[in-house]
Amino acid sequence: MNAQAALSPYSSSAGKTARHETHVLSVLVDNEPGVLARVVGLFSGRGYNIESLTVAEVAHLQGLSRITVVTSGAPETIEQISHQLERIVPIHKVTDLSLDNAFVQRELAMIKVRGKGESRTEALRLAEAFRARVIDATTESFIFELTGAPKKIDDFVELMRPIGLVEVSRTGVAAITRGPLTM
């Protein structure tokens, strides 16, 4: 529960849990101007968390885009978020992928590491263990490309930090359900 909720007798809701969970929501939208602003505005306006958000067109002919939002909160809050998203007129469908947990998620990151001598070899050794690719190199730097679940990227970034991490760029999560069925 956040600090504000603890202050207010109105928001200490009976029957609500204090559990905090992270969920991945897939949102299929009409690819029209302003739709992303509606989604982002909903999160900021109602005080919901966005841990990551990605958006891209997925069906050009039908004009459909897919937004993947990673959010966190009490389970009731996350259910509220889904329903609030469904109220946005140009949204076709909202699926909380985390509910039955049968989905895969990937994120791409580019990680720049600076260093000389011993630390370069160490960086390359770790990169190999994580299956990170070198996509740019100078005598004093590498850029690694790494794809994986967010946790894997977090871990890699942490390992690079003492070696000479200077910059990270991440795409945010894309996710899809497992098996033959669609969202």
Partner: peptide
């Protein structure tokens, strides 16, 4: 005050807007 709101009742909520349900009161 929500945590003292009708503590002993079962609640049925009829509404056209699914987001109204369980928003403030379960």
């Amino acid at each position: 005050r929500l945590d003292a709101f009708s503590p002993g009742s079962k609640k049925i909520h009829i509404d056209i807007d699914p987001s109204s349900i369980n928003k403030n009161v379960m």
